Simulated scan of single mutants.
Amino acid sequence: MTTTVITVAPTGAESAKSDVPGLPVTLDELVHTAAECAALGASVIHVHVRDDDAAPTLDPGRLRATVAALRQRTDLIVQLSTGGAVTDSEDDRLAVLDAGPDMASCTMGTVNFGDDVFLNRWEFIIELHTRMQDRGIVPEYEIFDLGQLAALQRLLSRYGLPAGGHVHVDLVMGVPGGMPGTIDALAACRQALRDLPAATTFSATGIGRSSVPVMLAALSGGGHLRVGMEDTLNYAKGQPVESNMQLVARAVSLAQLAQRPAATVRQARELLGVGVG
């Protein structure tokens, strides 16, 4: 890879605005954050939506308004989370696709998520994958543990390549209950990626204190980066993150240091197969 696709995940569903003042939860805050992160070098935005009380929601109207606003104010690839919060129903999660994003997440298995369970039944994964095929929405397959890459290989062999024809996975590392945010875990995933189509690409997300080690390991292994306040609330020990821009700027700097500068949105679209057929 000659460039690095940088995804910003600015909000998530776990943190409260009252605890994290810089968390963008309104539509205006989200769009402002998106525009600033795009100017720094982000090419994809991974979106969770909040309601008027700043609580996570999968409200269809809010999702459609968010996609429209992001497209009006930025040229970022808009990727909606179909994970929502761990309490969201399968029907509500599938309905996320009705908002017409460029991309959407597709988590490849059930995982213990701290004290909760993030449930992803095999039948639900198939339905999400095939609906995205039908609608031309490009999936990002989210991988919380090594065995989920084997599940992805099974999915693709039985139900075909995703919309756009390119397979891209995001290794979510450091979630309590999932794989650790370590070089060894990332290396094991890279080995398992060899069982997937030859052009498969990956990005990596380090949760919490694993953020920087995972970024460095991903860049060294030819991967791409996802950063943001969904995943990381401390910039350094004893130094809370003030804005998503801090995290994007650091990722851009590390990518430049690795001689794989941040991809433009056009380059990211070409690589990921967004807008292809």
Rank of each mutant, 00 (worst) to 15 (best):
residue 45 I to S: 08
residue 46 H to F: 02
residue 47 V to R: 01
residue 48 H to A: 08
residue 48 H to Q: 02
residue 49 V to A: 13
residue 54 A to R: 04
residue 55 A to C: 10
residue 55 A to Y: 00
residue 56 P to E: 03
residue 57 T to P: 11
residue 57 T to R: 06
residue 60 P to Q: 07
residue 60 P to E: 06
residue 61 G to M: 02
residue 62 R to G: 14
residue 62 R to T: 07
residue 62 R to I: 02
residue 62 R to N: 12
residue 68 A to V: 06
residue 68 A to I: 03
residue 69 A to Y: 01
residue 69 A to G: 07
residue 69 A to Q: 01
residue 70 L to E: 08
residue 70 L to G: 03
residue 70 L to P: 02
residue 71 R to Y: 12
residue 71 R to A: 13
residue 72 Q to P: 00
residue 73 R to M: 05
residue 73 R to Q: 14
residue 73 R to H: 11
residue 73 R to T: 13
residue 74 T to D: 14
residue 75 D to L: 01
residue 75 D to W: 03
residue 76 L to P: 03
residue 76 L to C: 04
residue 77 I to M: 09
residue 77 I to N: 07
residue 78 V to S: 03
residue 79 Q to F: 05
residue 80 L to Y: 03
residue 82 T to L: 01
residue 82 T to Q: 05
residue 86 V to D: 08
residue 87 T to I: 09
residue 88 D to Y: 01
residue 92 D to R: 13
residue 93 R to C: 08
residue 95 A to C: 09
residue 96 V to G: 11
residue 97 L to F: 09
residue 97 L to T: 12
residue 99 A to T: 05
residue 99 A to R: 10
residue 100 G to C: 07
residue 102 D to M: 03
residue 102 D to W: 08
residue 104 A to Q: 05
residue 104 A to H: 07
residue 105 S to Q: 06
residue 105 S to Y: 05
residue 105 S to H: 08
residue 107 T to F: 02
residue 107 T to K: 07
residue 108 M to V: 01
residue 108 M to C: 14
residue 109 G to C: 07
residue 110 T to V: 12
residue 110 T to K: 01
residue 112 N to L: 14
residue 112 N to P: 13
residue 113 F to H: 07
residue 113 F to Y: 15
residue 113 F to W: 15
residue 114 G to M: 07
residue 114 G to T: 05
residue 115 D to S: 15
residue 115 D to T: 14
residue 115 D to K: 04
residue 116 D to A: 14
residue 117 V to E: 15
residue 118 F to P: 02
residue 118 F to I: 00
residue 119 L to G: 01
residue 119 L to R: 11
residue 119 L to C: 06
residue 123 E to N: 14
residue 124 F to G: 10
residue 125 I to R: 09
residue 125 I to F: 10
residue 126 I to E: 15
residue 126 I to S: 01
residue 127 E to D: 15
residue 128 L to A: 14
residue 128 L to F: 08
residue 128 L to S: 14
residue 128 L to P: 05
residue 130 T to Q: 14
residue 131 R to V: 11
residue 133 Q to L: 12
residue 133 Q to M: 09
residue 138 V to L: 11
residue 138 V to A: 13
residue 141 Y to S: 10
residue 141 Y to L: 02
residue 141 Y to N: 09
residue 141 Y to K: 00
residue 143 I to G: 13
residue 144 F to L: 11
residue 145 D to M: 06
residue 147 G to W: 04
residue 153 Q to I: 00
residue 155 L to H: 04
residue 157 S to N: 12
residue 159 Y to T: 07
residue 160 G to S: 09
residue 161 L to T: 04
residue 162 P to R: 00
residue 162 P to S: 01
residue 167 V to L: 13
residue 167 V to Q: 10
residue 168 H to T: 12
residue 168 H to P: 12
residue 169 V to R: 00
residue 170 D to Y: 00
residue 171 L to P: 10
residue 172 V to H: 03
residue 172 V to A: 12
